[in-house]
């Protein structure tokens, strides 16, 4: 039985150091098409991340625009040790945290570091197993249900399910699986430990699978 999927290095836009340096140089030189390219590529992901921290789409939009201005202001002092993309996300997240504190809202990854791990109980419903840890309700193969729905609908389901995740899980799974960052990059961007990243990703993927399962099994053939 072949089980594919040991490819931790998925990346939506893999960029070499040389490409990144060229991009930063072009921006510093005032090259408009370089700016438009990077804005088009990162605006959506930034908007998505911003919504983890701020309550409305409008304030997320504002936060993203502020981030772009801070990117320009800080560009000359950007140390090229970090990935450009991570650096931009870090600016956004710092601004978001400042804003959350100002507005007296709770900040993901300050409170959530402890909070996110237990209150919702185990990620997978414990009643799925008997006392010895065997399945009482084993997972059912999805291929039949999947053939009816099609990827587009399934992706839409996943997208909605992501929005319902607790903030910290949402942030991690968004950066890892939607944006294709690797574990190290996510840890640096969010300022969390590797262990924490691992736990949050596990929980997020477990929940997303369970949500898909609920939908796929709700519509029997």
């Amino acid at each position: 039985m072949m089980l594919p999927g040991m490819d931790p290095s998925r990346g939506r836009t893999p960029q070499t150091d040389a490409e990144e340096h060229a991009l930063v140089d072009a921006l510093l030189a005032g090259n408009e098409s370089a700016f438009i390219k990077v804005v088009r590529e990162l605006h959506g992901p930034l908007q998505r991340m911003a919504q983890v921290w701020v309550p409305s789409a409008a304030s997320a939009e504002e936060l993203v625009q502020e981030t772009w201005m801070a990117v320009l202001t800080g560009l000359a002092s950007f140390e090229r040790r970090a990935r450009f993309r991570s650096w931009v996300f870090q600016i956004l997240i710092n601004k978001a945290k400042t804003r959350a504190v100002r507005d007296h809202r709770s900040v993901p990854f300050s409170a959530l570091v402890g909070e996110d791990e237990d209150p919702d109980g185990p990620a997978l419903d414990p009643s799925r197993f008997d006392a010895s840890g065997h399945w009482t309700k084993p997972p059912v193969d999805w291929s039949g249900a999947e053939a009816r729905l099609g990827d587009k609908q399934l992706v839409a389901l996943v997208q909605k399910a992501i929005e319902r995740l607790p903030d910290a899980q949402r942030a991690v799974v968004t950066l890892r699986d939607v944006e294709g960052m690797d574990a190290d990059e996510v840890c640096r961007t969010l300022g969390i430990t590797d262990t924490h990243q691992r736990v949050l990703l596990h929980r997020a993927r477990t929940r997303l699978r369970a949500e898909l399962e609920a939908h796929l099994e709700a519509k029997p053939c």
Binding site: G5, R10, R12, H43, G44, P45, Q47, R48, W142, D151, L154, V155, V158, Q159, I162, V173, D177, V178, G180, R205, L208, R209, L212
Partner: peptide, 11 residues
């Protein structure tokens, strides 16, 4: 499969 579908979410 869930992870792969998540990778197809677009902004």
């Amino acid at each position: 499969r869930t992870r792969d579908l998540t990778g197809q979410v677009t902004d």
